[in-house]
Design a protein around this nucleic acid. Structure first.
Lengths: 103, 103
DNA sequence: TCGATGTATCGATGAGCGTCTATGCGAGTG
DNA sequence: CACTCGCATAGACGCTCATCGATACATCGA
């Protein structure tokens, strides 16, 4: 119920949605390797400053939606599929309404 | 992509999540009838003022998540199952990552 | 060891949002 | 018709958040 608000708030932002889309299907990258996306790519992709990108990444990681792995000087990001599956399930419940009015 | 932000922002709030939960499985109501929930019920359920409740309802309706039907003096609210199914599908995509890095 | 580079943190600022009180509108009820 | 009641709107206040520049930290290469 309430724990849904945290990850949903993290997703409910155009910038972070774009980040998730890119993590889901990455395109060109300066130092990505196929098993993760380098953080420096987002700076150019989103047209935002580096601190802002770092801020959004922290939110996504704290919400459990994205996994961050530090490899040497870079940080590689990847989606956390289980988190999205859980949220999707919770929302799908509203699509199958029991609609019984108790007294 | 971006059209997801609007409904997600509407859901990503503890108060509105509680409203959705109640619409999904209503309990006691002063004037509900089984095919919708009277707006006056939320005021007491949420412990918020009437204008605040009206504000949240407007957000949910504008996001296409809730349907409002005016019957006489009251307004009855109901979930819009298709909207939640669509959002759940979009989020479920992130749980099934293609993970192909194009150049 | 020193400089370069990627990232995180700090402080400030401006916009957006949730909440309230006060008020207006519409529809029943006496 | 006048009054009541449910709901919507307007304006204001406080808080959160997205964003930036400046700076600190960490790691790699020369």
């Amino acid at each position: 119920m309430d724990d849904l608000a945290l990850p949903l708030k993290a997703i409910a932002d155009p910038v972070r949605l774009q980040i998730l889309e890119f993590l889901h299907a990455p395109v060109a990258s300066c130092c990505s390797r196929g098993d993760g996306v380098c953080g420096c790519d987002f700076e150019q992709l989103l047209g935002l400053s580096q601190p802002t990108v770092s801020h959004h990444m922290k939110l996504l990681v704290d919400a459990g939606l994205v996994r961050a792995e530090k490899r040497g000087r870079w940080v590689y990001y990847d989606l956390e599929p289980a988190a999205f599956a859980a949220i999707a399930d919770r929302l799908a419940r509203f699509a199958h309404a029991p609609r019984r009015v108790a007294t």
